[in-house]
Design a binder for these strands. Structure first.
Lengths: 164, 164
DNA sequence: TTAAGTGCAAACGGTTTGCAGAATG
DNA sequence: CATTCTGCAAACCGTTTGCACTTAA
C-alpha cells in the first residue's frame, strides 16, 4: 500500500458524496500516512505547520472526521490523562493490532496477536452478533520498572497519584 | 457485597487521605451501587436530583473522581457518538467483563468470558509487562438487525451516517 | 474549632460552527 | 459559474476551579 492508493480511496469517497479533493486534504492525508502512528488532532496540526503547511485547525478537524467516516482512520485509545481524541490509520492494515498501555508513563504500544481476533469473534457470535470491529487495551506494568520505580521506556519518574 | 461494604471501603480511603465522609458522598455512592450500570456524570446528577437530593454537579464530579482514584469506579467506554466520560462500578466485581457495543444503536452490553483474561495476560508477558488491567470492546452487528435495518434491542431505526 | 466540603458561577480546553471570501470541477 | 472549501473567531459543552459559606470530626 502506498500514498497514492490512499489518495485514490479518499478521492473516490469524496466523489461519491459530491465533495472535492483539495491541497489541504491531500497534505493532511499524506502526513498521516508518513507518520503512521496514532495521533491527536492538535499534534497533527502543529506538525503540518512545522512542515510548512498553513492549514487551519478547523480544516484539520473537518478532514480527520471525513477520513474516519470513510474508514481510512478510526478513533483509537488515548494515553492516560489525555482529554482529547486519538486517531490511527487503519486503511490497508494487514494484521489486527491491539494496544498495550504502560501504566506508568501512559504511552501506548501496538501489539499484533492473530489468535485474539477469532476469540473475540466467537464471543460476539455467542451474543447473537457478527463482529464488525474491536479494540483491546491491555494496561501493564513493566517488570523492571515496578522494581526501580522508573519507566525505562520514557525515562520518566513514576508519576504521582492524581491530585484530589 | 453490599452497600455497607462499599461505604466502609470508601471511608477507609478517605481517612487515609485526611478526608471526610459526607452525606453527599454517601448518597452518590449508594446511588451508583443501586443503579449498577455504567453511567455518565450528568445522568447521575439528574437521577440524584430526581431522587430528591440537591447535590451540585461539581460535587458529583469531585466524588466520582475520588471513587475512580480509590478503585471503586473506573472509566468505561462510551456509547458511540457520546462526548462525555462513562464510569462503571468495579468494586467487588467477581468476573472480568468485556463490552459488546451494538453498531446500530451504540448501546453497550456486558459480556463475561473467563478464557479471554488468560489470553491477554499472555500477550502482556510477551511484551515484558505484567497485566494490571484491560478493556475489550467488541463492535457487532446483530444479524436480525442487519436484515431489517431496525435495532430490535432499542427500537430505533438504523442511524444515518454522521453528517459532513 | 478548624481543616475539609459544598454550591455557585466563572474559567477552561477540545471541538464545532456561522460566515465571508477563495477555489474546485 | 455554481457549489464546495477554507480560515477566522465565536459558540459549544463537558469538566474543572476559585471563592465564600457550611459542616464533619
Amino acid at each position: 500500500m502506498n500514498t497514492q492508493a490512499l489518495v485514490n480511496e479518499f478521492v473516490a469517497y469524496l466523489r461519491s458524496r459530491g465533495m472535492r479533493m483539495t491541497p489541504e486534504r491531500r497534505h493532511i492525508l499524506q502526513h498521516i500516512f508518513s507518520a503512521h502512528t496514532h495521533f491527536e488532532v492538535d499534534d497533527l496540526h502543529v506538525r503540518l505547520r512545522d512542515a510548512g503547511h498553513r492549514i487551519s485547525k478547523a480544516t484539520v478537524y473537518r478532514t480527520v472526521a471525513l477520513l474516519a467516516n470513510c474508514g481510512i482512520l478510526r478513533s483509537s485509545i488515548a494515553p492516560s490523562g489525555s482529554s482529547s481524541e486519538y486517531y490511527e490509520l487503519v486503511y490497508g492494515l494487514e494484521t489486527p493490532h491491539e494496544h498495550l498501555q504502560c501504566q506508568e508513563c501512559g504511552r501506548v504500544f501496538e501489539v499484533a496477536d492473530p489468535v485474539l481476533l477469532g476469540h473475540l469473534r466467537r464471543i460476539a457470535v455467542t451474543m447473537g452478533y457478527e463482529l464488525v470491529d474491536h479494540s483491546v487495551k491491555i494496561v501493564g506494568r513493566c517488570v523492571e520498572l515496578r522494581n526501580k520505580g522508573v519507566c525505562s521506556k520514557s525515562g520518566l519518574q513514576r508519576p504521582p497519584e492524581r491530585p484530589q
